[in-house]
Design a protein around this nucleic acid. Structure first.
Lengths: 111, 111
DNA sequence: TAAATATATCGACATTTCTCGATATGTCGG
DNA sequence: CCGACATATCGAGAAATGTCGATATATTTA
């Protein structure tokens, strides 16, 4: 993983509301009502549901989500007038792995 | 992992120099000269070596490292007049795991 | 095509972070 | 105890981020 990308991902994860969104999206069924239009959560959750739950303004959340998509940790899919957001688990795994020190192999406590 | 702690860790990792320091400390032997006093890297690297390599001022780096230690991703050990910093691999692993979605089990591509 | 709804973008101001030089504190060697 | 060196803290100005309301754009439906 490229340092520049990793820094951008870090920025997305450095704010409690954005981090909370990442948590909610781990398990949309348990954090959001079913959507009136789509019957599944395959593409995640629409912006307005995230907005309502967040307590921040629509414009703020829209910008957050847009930046999170720009760096790749979220994937956006449009269905009609709704934008659905879901986690990009592959990139998150890459980032997560990048943070670890592969030199350690399995982590050893009490070196 | 607590959301508040995770947010603080995210802030530490949201700056390219701090992220770079985390990278250097994965493998001190290959990024820093041997210390004049200590013959090993068991406790990491002293502040001044990190400072020199970073290109930022001593006060900036001191503050960076202090904050990184405060949230726990670095561990500081004093030896005489030197402070040595090393990665807290255990906490980094916890954070890294927190980011992942355990609901997925092993990650599946192409859902 | 006009109204309604969902989302995106803009401009502005408040808050936080970045970053420095100056200075304080801690520690060793003489 | 004093001078030298390592690190920490302080105060300040610059830059970035947070956050909003207003407005623009897109899409569906009447």
């Amino acid at each position: 993983m490229d340092m520049k990308l990793a820094t951008e991902i870090g920025k997305c994860l450095s704010n409690s509301v954005r981090l909370q969104i990442m948590e909610w999206l781990k398990d949309p069924e348990n954090h959001f009502p079913p959507h009136e239009s789509l019957k599944h959560f395959n593409d995640g959750v629409c912006v307005s549901y995230i907005h309502e739950k967040s307590g921040l303004s629509q414009s703020t959340i829209s910008t957050y989500l847009s930046n999170m998509e720009k760096c790749g940790i979220l994937i956006s899919t449009r269905h009609g007038k709704w934008s659905y957001l879901k986690r990009n688990e592959v990139l998150i795994l890459e980032y997560s792995t990048f943070l670890l020190n592969e030199k350690n192999g399995e982590i050893t406590i009490n070196s």
